[in-house]
Design a protein around this nucleic acid. Structure first.
Lengths: 239, 239
DNA sequence: CGATAAACATAACCTATGTTTGCGTATCGG
DNA sequence: CCGATACGCAAACATAGGTTATGTTTATCG
């Protein structure tokens, strides 16, 4: 539990051993949550910040017409809602997409960390900024890429993010979303998602069956959607 | 110069008088920059954080095919690139859209503030989160609203943001963008922006001429695009 | 085991938006 | 003052993606 949290914060690259100890001495609880259940709702006075240990969650907002927009996807190791500690009203909801194990971090704990542990505060701010960068890239997808490249781009992003936490192989991963979920993430209709997936399959760019995605030629898929991973702000590891 | 900065940080609502003093004693320079000029480029090792005193700027990214995507709009009182202090590589560029007066805040100054002034750090983090909320709302516009509502939504957002800094009246404001700029912000073609503006004009929702926007019936325009201002996280002022 | 629902698939049609092109007008440097 | 360039506007046409409808497969459950 603490490991996941420390690993996340360490990505910012500024923690000391003392900071690690501080984190390890927090009193945290983790909780198992079933699939498709709200963690928090728009308008709530939020009490806890959540970190995902396992499973997938999403940030979403429902328009008056009933359309669900997924604005972010959270995978194991991600914070769901750091905002909570800072902003007073939440402007969106967060739900699990699969069963999830999450750590609950009380708002007060975050407050304390930001006030008394500048390097940890810095790391949390860093995490916020990376989330924002991912959001920006999704915006670019919606504004400028056609449906097939948009999907391909999402698949490439997920490949890297899941590899970073050991949930993807070199060439693929388990993908737990329905086509409706994908549509809500990509700003498309489920029907069109289905069409485009068929096309991507038929050109051999992806192999997708039984909720498992295989990318036979990762380089080719990345080239197809002009994927540039710099926005993920990964520390260059083995590059 | 310090006033604008303090006003921005104060929106988070957590600064003390001592913090104000700290800010006032920073050594900052301001600089006039002509229209349509990059403040910083993608890939740069960034050195300064910018705060806009006057004029409009945007955050953008150019896709390989040459399409420019504007992912954010900065108006007077906004930070352009708080990231800089935290992330090491920039993944996008920032440019002025009109002539701008900007304050340059050295990266080292931000570092110092985050390490030694937790409430100021908190305020900067807050600003980041509000930017992210705005970004999310733009994402929703692109994913779920058709062109005319998308434009209307942008106009409503700008009305509030500009009113907050005294640059808009009750019913309108000077809007310095070209239709090409609008297209790049909205993920549309300039031609379609033109069409849609014509429609919005003909239905009387907006009056737009000589780079000045007037909204005869603000309530009606807000209703039209289902505008909900909660994502701006304004402190309720006179509501 | 059959019944029900969820997810996936695909076809026909429709519409919002992109594309191309052209024209008029304002703006600006020389 | 002139030519060049940017911007706004409009019309005709092309297409990606939305809509509606319906069938098929897979999972769930009594």
């Amino acid at each position: 539990m603490f490991d996941a949290l420390i690993r996340k914060l360490d990505m910012a690259g500024s923690l000391t051993e003392a900071d690690h100890q501080t984190v390890r001495h927090l009193s945290l609880r983790s909780r198992q949550i079933p699939a498709r259940q709200d963690l928090t709702c728009e308008g709530d006075r939020p009490e806890n910040v959540h970190l995902i240990l396992s499973g997938f969650a999403c940030r979403y907002k429902v328009l008056p017409r009933g359309k669900r927009n997924i604005t972010a996807l959270m995978v194991p190791g991600d914070f769901c809602d750091l905002h909570v500690a800072i902003l007073n009203e939440r402007d969106h909801s967060i739900a699990t997409m699969t069963p999830c194990m999450v750590v609950e971090i009380p708002r007060a704990t975050i407050r304390d960390l930001t006030e008394n542990h500048p390097r940890i505060a810095h790391a949390m701010w860093w995490a916020t900024l990376v989330d924002e960068a991912i959001l920006r890239e999704r915006l670019i997808s919606l504004a400028g890429r056609e449906a097939s490249r948009r999907i391909a781009h999402l698949f490439c992003e997920l490949l890297l993010r899941l590899q970073a936490v050991g949930l993807a192989r070199e060439d693929g991963y388990a993908i737990p979303f329905t086509q409706v979920d994908l549509a809500d993430m990509l700003g498309l209709t489920p029907v069109h998602v289905n069409r485009v997936l068929r096309d991507l399959r038929s050109t051999g760019l992806i192999v997708l069956a039984q909720r498992r995605l295989r990318i036979p030629d990762v380089t080719r898929l990345k080239a197809y959607c002009e994927f540039n991973p710099n926005y993920l702000h990964r520390v260059p590891r083995r590059n």
